[in-house]
């Protein structure tokens, strides 16, 4: 240990560290999407929202020297993108899956278009909390460098799960997602509920993007998101529309993403492309294992056309 290497123990540690570092965007996008889908709407466009959030957060942090203001603006931009999606989908006969794909294209294109001037400069980044102070091993300390947004994401996941179950507001969201007729019968405006739920979902995705550009990897460029926003939407279905399970799924996904570099770093070098595919294979395998024709609807909001 004199030279600071951890050998084989580096792999689980790297996966833990990877889970902490890589999962945050997944957490935010997936719990945001979870809320949106529980209200009976699907938003496949969160990839675009994520990239818009990343770009605007970086731009604002650069301009104002305040990364937290960047996060706030990213949330605001996400809110607007979400509201746009909800507004369009509210029109009769408009398909929400397709609109989502359209907004994904629009969001990424616009972010690249407007983000050109921000690629070169270096913006201030968000700080981290040092949770590894108790350890002498530098690797452990490094792994436990935890960003505030990661903590916020965990808190939000539990808070959302609780709120959906136990508050009047949560029940209204679920009602709108389960049955439009029942919601209308007691005088709930389904459109407004979905507008709010989709907008908040967008805001979460925007924050997820801010994490990418302001913390990890912590810079803005056009290749920043390699589909994290799209995958997070898949995670929601994988997590059966439960915010806490979304959290676990995100962590798992982050850890799986760290396998390939971690294995290479201890000398396992064969087939790294196949290891890179691990998260996707894992998700698919778990979906196959946990679904069945009879149970495929369990946990799914009744009004969610996409997953019927």
């Amino acid at each position: 240990m004199a030279d600071g290497g951890l050998g084989i123990w580096g792999v689980p540690l790297a996966m833990l560290a990877g889970a902490i570092r890589v999962s945050t965007p997944f957490i935010f996008v997936s719990i945001g999407e979870c809320l949106t889908e529980r209200s009976g709407r699907i938003n496949l466009g969160l990839e675009g929202t994520l990239v818009m959030g990343a770009m605007s957060a970086y731009g604002v942090a650069l301009g104002t020297d305040s990364p937290w203001l960047g996060v706030l603006v990213a949330a605001g931009v996400g809110l607007l993108m979400g509201a746009l999606h909800a507004g369009i989908c509210q029109l009769p006969r408009v398909n929400d899956i397709a609109t989502g794909i359209g907004l994904m294209l629009f969001g990424t294109g616009l972010a690249f278009f407007l983000g050109k001037p921000f690629i070169q400069p270096k913006a201030p980044n968000l700080g981290a909390i040092d949770l590894g102070w108790w350890s002498d091993i530098p690797q452990v300390r490094q792994a436990l460098q935890v960003n505030y947004l990661f903590v916020l994401g965990i808190v939000l996941a539990f808070a959302l799960a609780w709120a959906l179950q136990n508050t009047r507001w949560g029940m209204i969201v679920r009602l709108a997602g389960e049955s439009v007729d029942a919601a209308l019968a007691i005088g709930v405006s389904v459109g407004r509920v979905r507008l709010i739920a989709t907008s908040i979902g967008g805001a979460f995705a925007g924050i997820g993007g801010a994490f990418l550009s302001l913390y990890y990897p912590g810079s803005w460029n056009e290749g920043l998101s390699s589909g994290q926003g799209l995958m997070a939407v898949a995670l929601v279905i994988f997590a059966r529309w439960d915010p806490v399970r979304c959290l676990w799924a995100s962590l798992l996904f982050g850890a799986a993403g760290a396998i390939s570099p971690a294995l290479q770093s201890i000398g396992v070098t064969q087939g790294y492309y196949l290891f890179s595919a691990a998260p996707y294979v894992l998700t698919l395998a778990l979906m196959i294992a946990t679904c069945s024709p009879e149970r495929s609807l369990r946990g799914a909001p009744g009004e969610l056309g996409a997953v019927k």
Binding site: G5, G18, P261
Partner: peptide
Amino acid sequence: IFTGDWSLPVKEAEATNSMIAQG
């Protein structure tokens, strides 16, 4: 560490970090 493609920022950061973890 090979990331597998020419522009994969998150993987590049992960690769860097896992090497740092190895000293």
